[in-house]
Amino acid sequence: MKKIQVLGTGCAKCKKLEENVALAIKNLGLDYEIEKITDIKDILNYGIMMTPGLGIEGKIVSSGRLLNVREIETILTTDNA
């Protein structure tokens, strides 16, 4: 199963992003495992400095933004195309 990373130290936006990701996965009926990266050192190792961040299979696709469900769906659809 593919892994999707939600990066954030626990801010409100990070939690909301995680909810949106879960919803997008469910809407599209895809198989992804959500991995939460909460340690600041790990987050920095992904090469970003603004949270929340989003990664697919370890590759960052967004940083410092709370993506809405539709945006995440677009990202996931391209990833599966």
């Binding site: 130290t9 801010c11 600041i40 920095l44 400095m49 603004m50 949270t51």
Partner: peptide, 17 residues
């Protein structure tokens, strides 16, 4: 540069490292 006080620490670490 985009900045919010909540990202002061990651920015600090990211810059210094």
């Amino acid at each position: 540069t985009p900045f919010c006080s909540c990202s002061a620490i990651p920015l600090f670490l990211g810059f210094v490292e």
